[in-house]
Write a protein that binds this DNA or RNA. Structure first.
Lengths: 348, 348
DNA sequence: TTGTACGCGTTATCAA
DNA sequence: TTGATAACGCGTACAA
């Protein structure tokens, strides 16, 4: 039980070489003779030295190898959404060439004590969404010279954005339904704002969440009078609840439903079954995202496949580029319309 | 466009104070006169200094404020499991008093370049599961004096474990079914090992994954002859597939199914419906975990509620204790049996 | 191929 | 309440 951990100088002394030589043995940046390497390695294991201290190395190098990922919501909630999960996956790949790890951060730290955008040793940060509170912290971060990228959100003109053609994509699905003869169409949207409770979206209701607003706009381009019911979140249970409302009155029943996420669509389908409606014979349902919904078989959603993994990857590549001193441009990805078996001709 | 970022010494010079005084203004560790604070803060904003460099601070302090979370699987896959997600949630809370953030790490870094247990500036590490490859890296990490805790796994005697009474809990559910008169019971288990493909668990099949083995053992205590079908993962679709196998032959059909996760149970219920069986009148189904399965209503699973959030929180508290120099003990949590409406008397 | 010299930016300690 | 000093542990020009 030594009183102090061995450092690279201890190893060097033990091996009879200089500290820089020992350093080079571990970093491999410079050729070292086999004999020297051996001596250093032996000394290291004799002293129980397991490699350079990452803290010191990161100070010296000016890089910590850490990319912060900032969510607006509670961490646990964020991962309940498969879209975010898959995006994280792509992000992990995107930053891999950097040799960086992902540090989970939340926007406002309730305890006030946790690691934050300001105090964590970040090389770069990726924001997932960007609302009021976050925009303030941002100035300080960018002032520090830390590259920032935002996914699905607007963090100001100077911050590169990774986005989606939400409006155009949703318009495409709506157009598909119109071509199939549907005229009575309803929309089930994502929340209008954080903390939203499920309910009809009236004309005056402000929609703060970008994704919700953009997708709805696309639907309304084709069906300007479509009623929109906003769910409280992207969950099957929420879609089910929304579907029950839509299908409650046979007289008012739509022949097609545009859901703003696949999970919502799955719930709507469940509601249709409950109401004794066949999909797609009696009612067509479209989703958005293109994920695999666990347990939805035999249905295959007609949906808009978003390149969610690519979004994450692009964000990773963008921060990598910025760390190289390059300018990263904003990117807008395009969704792929995929026709499944949940949409069909409007009933007579 | 200065050529170099301002440092705390620059700020101190500008403010006409010493570097240590300026430091204290930012850390708040020592009282500073209002006038001095003001001068320092003014100088800082004049110079565009936004606070101490976390890299340097962490070197000096010997703490980075980062706790690594190591998964055995691909990061994306890990978060597909709601249990892991919720556990992360608790972990985030558990480390909050430390003021630490969570760094996502995977066991074996495929690229070889990514941040790893060895190169990341960690204050502590939490392993989620612990198989072969991981155990090796472990020695080096603990040698470095970094506290490690493992959740649901065995990392050796020196590493504190956060576990669950899997066997006893599952025995309890089995016992419940037995009391209800069931005699023909089947088990749907989690995978026997990483990469497992769904199939019957024969007598000789080695079960490498601790959780699977322990829960099965509990079931077999009550129903020694129960056949066990191991799914390929904890998903509704996997439970559905397993259920189809179990319910295929009316002659061999069990009157009750013990599923090793709630998601599997949900799938089994779906399979039962498909086969025209009523739950629980014709077949009882129990789960494990106690999560809310999206879209399973109106069923309420008879299941074993595990304190998953507490598990994460306990892991966080354990590393916090170890960082304080205390010894952290292993903890085994207990599941709560919860009777829902998916289990009932055996049919005559 | 190896060693010398220096600084990365901060903060703990102690004395004033 | 403030300041001087000395690490924290390492990497990298540059010279030898």
């Amino acid at each position: 039980m030594s009183t102090r951990r061995a450092t690279i100088s201890d190893v060097a002394r033990e091996a009879g070489v200089s500290a820089s030589t020992a350093s080079v043995v571990f970093s491999g940046k410079t050729p070292v003779s086999d004999a020297t390497r051996r001596r250093v390695l032996d000394a290291a294991s004799a002293l129980g030295y397991t490699g350079p201290d990452p803290r010191a190395a990161s100070l010296r190098r000016g890089r910590s190898g850490i990319v912060g990922v900032v969510f607006e919501e509670h961490l646990g909630t964020a991962f309940l959404d498969p879209i975010k999960t898959l995006m994280m996956d792509g992000l992990a790949d995107g930053v891999a060439p950097l040799g960086a790890g992902l540090l989970l951060l939340r926007d406002q730290d309730p305890s006030g004590t946790g690691a934050s955008l300001m105090t964590a040793p970040l090389d770069a940060a990726v924001l997932v969404g960007c609302s009021g509170h976050l925009r303030e912290s941002l100035a300080a971060v960018t002032a520090r010279g830390i590259p920032v990228v935002v996914i699905e959100g607007d963090a100001g003109d100077d911050i590169p954005r990774i986005g989606l053609d939400n409006r155009e994509a949703q318009r495409q699905a709506a157009s598909h339904l119109r071509t199939l003869g549907h005229r009575k169409v309803a929309v089930v949207t994502l929340p209008a704002r954080a903390g939203w409770e499920a309910g009809w979206l009236l004309d005056g209701t402000p929609i703060v969440i970008d994704v919700t607003r953009e997708r709805l706009a696309g639907a309304l381009e084709i069906f300007p009078d479509a009623p929109a019911y906003a769910a409280a979140g992207s969950f099957i249970a929420e879609g089910l609840a929304a579907g029950r409302v839509l299908f409650a009155d046979p007289a008012e029943r739509p022949t097609a439903v545009l859901a703003q996420s696949d999970l919502l669509a799955a719930g709507v389908i469940r509601a249709a079954e409950e109401a004794g409606l066949r999909v797609p014979e009696d009612v067509s349902v479209t989703g958005f995202d293109g994920i695999v919904v666990d347990g939805l078989a035999p249905y295959e959603l007609t949906t808009l496949v978003q390149p969610v993994n690519e979004k994450g990857r692009a964000a990773g590549m963008a921060v990598a580029a910025m760390l190289d001193g390059a300018e990263a441009a904003s990117i807008t990805f395009t969704c792929d319309f995929r026709e499944g078996n949940t949409s069909g001709p409007a009933p007579l």
